[in-house]
Simulated scan of single mutants.
Amino acid sequence: MVGFLWIGSVLVMDITAVILAAGKSTRMKSALPKAIHPICGKPMTRYVVDACREAGVERIVVVVGYRADDVKAALGSDVSYAVQEEQLGTGHAAAQAMPLVESSQVVILPGDSPLVRPETIKKVISTHNETKAAATLLTAILEDPGSYGRIVRSSDGEVERIVEAKDASPEILEIKEVATSAYCFDTELLRESLAEIRSDNAQGEYYLTDTIGILRSKGYKISAFIAEDWCETVGINTRVELAEAVKILQRRILEQLMLDGVTIMSPETTFIDSGVSIGADTVVYPCTVIEGNTSIGVGCRIGPFTRIVDTAVGDGASVMASNIVGVRVVKGSAVGPFENASCGVCGEDG
C-alpha cells in the first residue's frame, strides 16, 4: 500500500509523479516546445502537473529536453526538473528522473495528455495498491487504435506486455486495448527494469513500455485500469488534436462556471480561459472571449461581441461590444458599446 510521510509539517503520500515533457513539436510544425503550447490560457503540461497535485501527489519531477529553459520558465518553480539531453525514448527519459525519486512508488505520465483528470490518477494509484502489483497501467479501449502500443494479455486476462505499433504483427494490431503512457510503479522494481531495457527495435529507442515485459517475465504482477473516458488519455501531437483538446477543456470550464451559478447564453460561441474567475449571477452573452488573469464580479453582464483580457470587473458592471485589456472596470458601471481600452480604469460609478 502507498504510505505517507511528513514533508515539514505536511503529511503527503509516499509517491512521486514523473512527467515526460522533453519532446519537440515536430508534428505540430512549431518551434515552440510541445509541453508549453497554450491551451485555454495554460501551458499543456501544466494541466498534467495540476491534475497530479489535485490527486494528492505533491512531489513532481518534470523531464525536460528541447528548449529546457523555456519549458521551466513556463511551467514554474513549484516542481523539480530532470534534463534529457538527447531524446532516446520514453524509457531513457524516465531514467533521467529516477535520481530525484526517493518515494516508494512513482506515477509516470506523458506531458502531452492535458485531459487526464485527478480522479483517474487516483484510480490508477488505488488499483496499483489494491492488486499489490509491481506496475499498473492506465489503458483505453479505442475503435481505431492507430499508432498506440497494444496491450497483450494472457489467456487468463493478465497483462503480459505492451507491443509498440511499429513493432507489432498484424494479429497484435487488431487489439483495441492500448497503452496510454501512464503508469504506477514500485520504484525499486522500476529502477531495476529500466537498467535492462534495450534499443533493438524499429525506432532504435529505449521504450518505457519494455519494463512491463521485463517485470512480467520475472513473475511480477502487472495490473491495468481501463480509463472510463478514453478522451482523457489522448496525447496531443498535431494542431488538429490540439483543437480537439481545446473543445473538451472549454466544455469542462464552461460547465463548471454554469454549475457555480454563471449563466452562459451560448456556450458554442463563448471562450473562457482556465484561470478566469466569474461571480454568481453574472450573465455572459454570445460571441464573448474572456482570457488571462481576469476576474469578474457577481451580477455582471458581459457581451455580446466582447473580449476581456487581464481585467478586473467589479460587481454589477456591464461590458458590451468592447475590447478591454489590462484595465479595472468600476463596480456597477457600464462599459461600451465600442470601447477599446488597454490600461487604466473604465466606467463610472453606476
Rank of each mutant, 00 (worst) to 15 (best):
G3Q: 06
L5Q: 07
W6N: 12
L11K: 15
A22F: 10
R27S: 13
M28H: 08
K29F: 14
P33R: 02
V57L: 06
R59I: 12
V61C: 08
V62H: 01
A73Y: 07
A74W: 07
D78L: 00
S80V: 09
Y81H: 07
Y81L: 04
Q84L: 14
E85Q: 11
E86F: 14
A94C: 10
E102G: 12
S104M: 09
I108A: 05
L109R: 02
D112V: 06
E119G: 09
I121M: 09
K123W: 02
I125R: 05
H128S: 07
K132S: 10
L138K: 01
T139R: 02
A140G: 01
Y148F: 12
G149A: 13
I151P: 00
S154I: 01
V159I: 11
E160H: 05
K166P: 00
A168T: 07
S169W: 10
P170C: 00
P170N: 00
A179D: 15
A179Q: 07
T180S: 01
S181T: 10
A182M: 15
F185K: 10
T187C: 04
E196Q: 14
I197C: 01
A202V: 15
Q203L: 15
E205S: 10
T209E: 14
I212Y: 06
I212S: 08
G213F: 04
S217A: 13
I222E: 06
C231A: 15
N237P: 00
R239H: 09
R239E: 15
V240Y: 14
E241N: 04
K247F: 04
L249T: 05
I253C: 00
L254Y: 09
L254V: 09
V262K: 05
V262I: 10
S266Y: 13
S266D: 15
D273A: 08
G275L: 08
A280N: 07
Y285P: 01
V289P: 05
E291R: 13
E291L: 15
G292E: 13
T294G: 06
T294D: 08
S295A: 15
I296F: 11
I296W: 12
V298K: 13
V298N: 12
C300L: 08
I302L: 06
G303C: 03
T306V: 08
D310Q: 10
T311P: 02
A312W: 15
G314H: 05
D315C: 03
A321E: 12
A321F: 12
G332T: 02
V335M: 02
F338P: 00
C346P: 00
G347T: 08
G350R: 14
